[in-house]
Design a protein around this nucleic acid. Structure first.
Lengths: 272, 272
DNA sequence: CGTCCTAACAGCGA
DNA sequence: CTCGCTGTTAGGAC
């Protein structure tokens, strides 16, 4: 469930809290989350110091001493929760990382998530992260670069914006209001957009995500300290508001199937 | 345009007429039809004797002496026309094969066709023919084998029957009445068919093609001697009869788009 | 609510 | 009306 706003907050907090700490133990409850056998995973990590934490697409990267990287993906939703020295940790975790000062953090995946280890040479060959596009909120994401995604091809605008290989960080939650704010139907082909459409879409994308980031993400997600974000359902314009009136024109917001995902649109403001 | 009935007649006539003759010359007008440079194509063929002619999918195979094979595909429609010793050949041909007795035949492709040469060892690597399914009219095409195409998968019945890799020889003309006789809508998924549906479809397939073969194919196609077949538009039940009444129920036959091809159906007898 | 793999479909060009 | 290639979509698994 976590998308870029929540993941930016998490990585920031993790960087501040964990940088300089050294891993003393790794507890693996669910083996399937890993890309290595638990013993190898643990052995690679224990003794490493956390140098830096940052985002790449929907992955959180923890750069380690000894040329290593811990890569976390929250899948369909997860809680990454810090515990201080002597504090109890969250129950129901799938993986737990423990530091030599007695603190640590747990990963609790709702359905499925990933905790991968890669050495620096292996990193380029790590399929899930090797070809991620630039973060939707980053200096690279200029209007010029954004525009290069459009104009050619018969792909749909929703499919393009949620394709992590082209632009990363947008999922099926924030995309709803992004498209509404741009007044675009999710199945519009990317080649059918005018320059003005693309510019509106660019500002809708960065605006929606930046505002959510400033509110520290969704209210039904938790940060590294268990604190929920400030974006409530009432902040949504059309997302997950089927049956309610469009904030712009009052028409009834519809829930439709677009390919295999759900979309929420105002049928008047976002004609096909 | 030629499908199995026309191609069976052609291969039969070509076998009877050409077996034993030796190629003396090959004239290439349209280079793009070949899989080899014209000089190499010609060199491989001249001096070879025709041993046997038969069908594989929509390809006509001419087995040659010296471990060679001439493979003809008529594409969107073509005339293969025989000329006797001293007779004039058809004008507008793309390739012409001339025998040492003065006879020969021409290939006139309406839009695009292929004349390929393969040595016997190369044959297995000839992509277009390497994985053709069994001919729709052949001893292999038992009800049991036919049934194995159905039951599983989300493919559409029309796409399955015209997939030359699964069952070969059916094109967009005969498929129309095959589906009508089986009372099946072209976009029905193969996994949704009952045993009775499959049995009806089997008998519709073999019946439609066999009857057309007995009439020596379509009236707007020509055999090896330029003689048209006996299947006229009036013989079609729903194929290419949009706007006319269904022969079964009188409802108006509709022309619809199914994927990228056209389909002709009775909307009452072939519900979706 | 995600991501990957694969089957199936769609458009183009020869 | 053909076939094959390629980009895109759709479904199931984890």
């Amino acid at each position: 469930m976590a998308e870029l706003p929540e993941l930016l907050v998490l990585a920031e907090q993790m960087g501040t809290e964990l940088a300089g700490k050294t891993l003393a133990d790794v507890e693996v409850v669910q083996e399937k989350c890993l890309n290595l056998p638990p013993a190898a995973f643990r052995q690679n990590l224990v003794g490493c110091r956390i140098d830096r934490v940052y985002n790449r697409g929907k992955w959180i990267f923890l750069d380690l001493s000894q040329e290593g990287h811990l890569l976390l993906n929250l899948g369909m939703g997860a809680d990454l929760l810090y515990y201080g020295p002597g504090q109890a940790w969250d129950d129901g975790h799938r993986v737990r990382f423990h530091f030599d000062d007695g603190s640590g953090f747990t990963c609790r995946f709702w359905w499925f998530g990933h905790a991968h280890y890669c050495s620096t040479p292996e990193l380029a060959g790590h399929e899930p992260t090797a070809s991620l596009g630039p973060l939707a909120l980053s200096d690279e994401m200029t209007l010029e670069w954004f525009s290069s995604l459009f104009g050619k091809g018969r792909r749909r605008v929703k499919a393009m914006l949620t394709d992590q290989k082209r632009i990363s960080g947008i999922g099926n939650v924030y995309i709803q209001d992004i498209l509404f704010r741009a007044r675009l139907h999710p199945t519009r082909p990317v080649s059918g957009l005018s320059e003005a459409d693309v510019a509106r879409l660019y500002h809708a994308t960065t605006g929606t995500l930046r505002e959510a980031y400033e509110k520290r993400g969704l209210a039904y997600e938790k940060d590294f300290y268990g604190v929920p974000g400030g974006v409530t359902m009432d902040d949504f314009l059309v997302g997950y508001r089927e049956g309610k009136p469009c904030p712009e024109c009052g028409a009834t917001v519809a829930k439709i199937r677009t390919g295999s995902t759900a979309s929420f649109i105002c049928p008047v403001c976002q004609p096909e």
